[in-house]
């Protein structure tokens, strides 16, 4: 029984790593087709990727859209969570539902809806449009994460600060935000990862300046190529580095 379980673990890991391993291995192959047999290794595909100005521009656009849309989503999400958790308002259940609603809808539908609106208004699509779409999909997540971490503990600290004469702005910046920092950071990084990797909304809502997933998509049209392997491996290694750093510095410390 024990043996079967370790065997299952080994098979599962093979399945999970087979595509990624092939991706990275054949990105080092000295030849055009990323298929066996392996020859090389060479780093020339990486050189190719780094000197491709279109790919690098797309990478910049992706970073820009990811960081700015996550900032907006987090800010709006925080304000909404603060308002709904601290004040008794009529219809607050309804508003909570409204804010969560985009989470239940496919990205494709969010993108299509916005595309129709931009078309009808005669506004061309752009990185701005994609950014707006990314805020729509990430706002519910940021709201839910931050709202869930607001408890009585913060409320007491806020009361204390107010009793001691702090105004609303100082309460938020000096008490609420520092106390909620882990949740806000978690929401921000989650939103950033999702935006960074999002394809279909960016595909529908950008045209001349595109994000990295859209640029990679257009590379795929030319079929299998070692260059696609190289850019894929670079993105993977970059993300893994960020995840490990976060695990070690941000979430590791909280456990210690």
């Amino acid at each position: 029984m024990r043996m079967i379980q370790w065997f299952y673990l080994a098979v599962a890991f093979t399945f999970i790593y087979l595509p990624v391993a092939s991706l990275v291995l054949f990105s080092l192959k000295d030849g055009n087709l990323p298929l066996p047999p392996f020859e090389g290794p060479t780093l020339r595909w990486y050189q190719d990727v780094l000197s491709d100005s279109q790919l690098m521009a797309a990478l910049g656009h992706s970073l820009l859209v990811a960081v700015s849309s996550s900032l907006v989503a987090c800010t709006l999400g925080f304000l909404a969570a603060y308002g709904l958790a601290r004040h008794v308002l009529p219809g607050s259940v309804f508003m909570r539902g409204l804010l969560i609603a985009p989470m239940t809808v496919s990205y494709l539908i969010v993108g299509l809806g916005l595309l129709i609106v931009f078309n009808q208004l005669g506004i061309g699509v752009s990185l701005w449009a994609a950014g707006i779409g990314h805020v729509v999909i990430n706002l519910p997540l940021c709201f839910a994460i931050i709202y869930a971490s607001m408890g009585a503990q913060q409320q007491n600290a806020e009361h204390a600060a107010r009793d001691l004469g702090a105004n609303e702005g100082r309460v938020i910046t000096l008490v609420t935000i520092p106390m909620l920092a882990p949740a806000i950071l978690a929401a921000f990084f989650l939103a950033m990862t999702l935006s960074w990797d999002e394809f279909v909304i960016a595909f529908l809502l950008t045209r001349f300046e595109v994000t990295l997933p859209v640029e990679i998509w257009s590379l795929l049209r030319s079929g299998l190529s070692s260059k696609t392997n190289a850019i894929g491996s670079l993105v993977f290694l970059g993300s893994v580095t960020v995840v490990l750093l976060l695990e070690i510095f941000l979430f590791g410390r909280r456990r210690a």
């Binding site: 595509p19 092939s22 087709l33 990797d197 990295l212 997933p213 299998l224 894929g232 993105v235 993977f236």
Partner: peptide, 26 residues
């Protein structure tokens, strides 16, 4: 480790399966 490949870009992840499953693939 079991969820690490989750952080491959979604488009690239599907593409990687082509390397594995195509006619002359792995």
């Amino acid at each position: 480790l079991s969820i690490l490949p989750f952080w491959t870009s979604y488009v690239v992840r599907s593409y990687s399966w082509l390397l594995v499953m195509s006619r002359e693939g792995v």
